[in-house]
Design a binder for these strands. Sequence first.
DNA 1: GTACTAAGTAATAATTATTATTATTTAACT
DNA 2: AGTTAAATAATAATAATTATTACTTAGTAC
Lengths: 133, 133
Amino acid sequence: MIKKEAKDIKYTNQRIEILDFLRKFDGHPTVEDVYEGVRKKLTRISKATVYKNLRFLAEKGLIKEVNIKGVSRFEANLVPHHHIICIGCGSITDYESEDLTDYSLKVAGDIENFEVESTDTNFYGICKDCKEE
Amino acid sequence: MIKKEAKDIKYTNQRIEILDFLRKFDGHPTVEDVYEGVRKKLTRISKATVYKNLRFLAEKGLIKEVNIKGVSRFEANLVPHHHIICIGCGSITDYESEDLTDYSLKVAGDIENFEVESTDTNFYGICKDCKEE
DNA sequence: GTACTAAGTAATAATTATTATTATTTAACT
DNA sequence: AGTTAAATAATAATAATTATTACTTAGTAC
C-alpha cells in the first residue's frame, strides 16, 4: 500500500489504488486498463474518477502520461527514460540511457526562449516478434 | 500543386489537397485543422476521408503523425527533427539538431531485439509567453 | 479516347474516448 | 467527534474516431 508521501494531496482510496496499480503494472496501461485494474478492488469506482485522477496525478508529478498513436497511456516510472515503440504491433518498452538524457539536456541548453524541464526520446522501429513474421 | 512523386499511390484530389495543405501549413495541425483547411478548396470533402487519408499518408511515409497531450497532429516535415512542447499552453515547435539525432541513432545501435528506424526527442518545458504570466 | 476494375469518397451511423454536471460522500483538520 | 472543502459516483453530454455502404473516380488495358 502507498504511503502518503506528498502532502497537499488528499489520499483517497481511489487515488491510492490507481497509484498502486500503476506502480505494479509492468508496462504502459491505457485509461481502460487502469479502470479494469482498479475495479477489481474498488468495484464501484467510476471511469470519470479514473480519468480525473490520472490527470490529477500526472499534474502533481506522481505519474507520467505517454502518448502513443493517439492513445493516452500512463506510467509510474519517474526515472528519466526513453521509449522503444514498435510501429508494427504498437508495443512500448522503457529504455534507460542516462547518457542520452544528459546529451539531450545539454542540447536543450541551446534552445532560446524556452526553459526545458525534461526530455525523452522515442525510438521507432520493428520489434523482434514483428520481424519474424 | 503536388506532383505524383510516389507511385503505388492513387493521387486523388483529396489526397493532393491534404498533402498540399500540410506542406504549406507552418505547424502541427490537428485532424480538425486539416479538415477546415482543405474544405476551402474541396467543399464537399468528408471528415472521414480526411481521417483515412491522414492515416494512409502517414502509413506511406509521406507525412508524420505526432501525438501531443492525447491529440493527433500531422506534419509534412520529413527532415529528422525534434519537438519543443510547452506544458503550459501546449504549443509545439520543431527543433533541428543533427547532432542529437546522430547521438540517438548511435544509442539505438545498442538496443537488442529491436531494429530502430527513426528517433525523435521531445523537450518539455515552459515557453517564453507562458513564463511571463 | 473508351471501357474496366480496384480503390477511394461522401454521407451517415456507430463506436469509443473524454469531459461536464450534480447530489452525495469522505479525508484531513480542528 | 464535528466541520468543510474537495472528491466521488452516476449519468449526461460532447468530442474523436471508425465502420458501413452505395456511388464515383484514377489508372490501366484495350
